[in-house]
């Protein structure tokens, strides 16, 4: 057993772990001070178990939380399955926040929120903006404080997939992309380390200012940026929220308040430089 705790604000996670490989891999992705030995005096936000159920070739590791099964996996895919497992726990249990499936970045205290389904280019755009100096709050999870309405950072490595890995490595050779794993259910997955600036601001909230719904489209002749009504933006944000329905009235009030603060746009692009330029003009 190599149990550990990982403290990526706002959550502290206890990991009951049977894999030395996972421990070593996470040490490449997270700052050393965020991974500690478990402290029996602490109450953790949730616990993730990574347990070896049997010896053999076929997916011997069981990833679960409490008695809730998440995935079986082999040793080679432990890192992505662990990262997805953490996302799953946050989406399933952490209802002190309104959680929206979106990348979030910050500049001058203002948050840019990019909700989008897989394949829209959200993480690629997020990684590019971070490399260009924006502070990363999250590439996956926009957490809205239900009391203050602030956007709460949840800084973790940026998950990149397939072609986006190659593109980002060529655009930013200095970027640190680690733990590249082929053959997952999402194809090849790798993790770009957050900038020092992003890790340093991991407890610094931001105010929602813009919502961009990005859509990468290789056939797009010219970039289009179109205004979205606030009510439409509300509905899209609700549709991209993991727990809007769970929070019910509280979710509606929280999302209404957020929507009142933002300007919303739909961005369709083929060229990342054009998208970046347009966002820099807008934000």
């Amino acid at each position: 057993m190599t149990d550990f705790a990982i403290h990526t604000a706002p959550f502290s996670v206890l990991v009951a772990n049977h894999s030395n490989k996972l421990t070593a891999a996470l040490a490449e992705l997270y700052p050393a001070e965020l991974i500690t030995r478990p402290n029996p005096q602490l109450i953790y936000d949730f616990c993730l178990q990574v347990q070896r159920k049997w010896a053999g070739w076929g997916r011997p590791f069981h990833v679960s939380s409490g008695d809730q099964h998440f995935r079986m996996t082999d040793s080679a895919q432990l890192v992505p399955v662990f990262e997805w497992g953490v996302n799953w726990c946050v989406a399933s249990y952490q209802h002190q926040f309104l959680a929206i499936h979106a990348a979030v970045l910050e500049r001058d205290g203002k948050a840019l929120i990019m909700p989008a389904p897989p394949g829209s280019g959200k993480s690629t755009l997020c990684a590019v903006l971070m490399q260009e100096g924006w502070r990363l709050l999250s590439d996956e999870m926009c957490l809205v404080d239900l009391v203050s309405g602030a956007i709460v950072p949840y800084v973790r490595p940026v998950s990149l997939k397939n072609q986006s890995l190659t593109l980002l490595q060529s655009w930013y050779p200095q970027a640190q992309i680690r733990q590249i794993t082929a053959g997952t259910t999402k194809g090849t997955v790798g993790y770009m380390l957050p900038s020092k600036h992003s890790w340093a601001g991991m407890q610094q909230t931001a105010t929602a200012a813009w919502v961009i719904f990005p859509q990468y489209n290789a056939a797009q002749q010219q970039l289009t940026l179109s205004k979205v009504s606030q009510a439409d933006a509300f509905m899209h944000l609700a549709n991209n929220s993991f727990n809007y329905a769970v929070l019910a009235e509280q979710g509606f009030i929280s999302l209404s308040r957020l929507t009142e603060q933002i300007d919303a746009y739909r961005l369709e692009y083929a060229c990342i430089e054009q998208a970046l330029s347009e966002l820099n003009k807008l934000c």
């Binding site: 997805w84 996302n87 799953w88 989406a91 399933s92 499936h101 389904p117 009510a231 439409d232 509905m235 609700a238 549709n239 991209n240 929220s241 993991f242 727990n243 809007y244 329905a245 509606f252």
Partner: peptide, 17 residues
């Protein structure tokens, strides 16, 4: 249920992964 005023669009949650 949540609706845009004047339409029947309803909010649904995304798939969790």
């Amino acid at each position: 249920e949540t609706h845009l005023v004047g339409t029947a669009t309803e909010a649904k949650e995304p798939d969790v992964d």
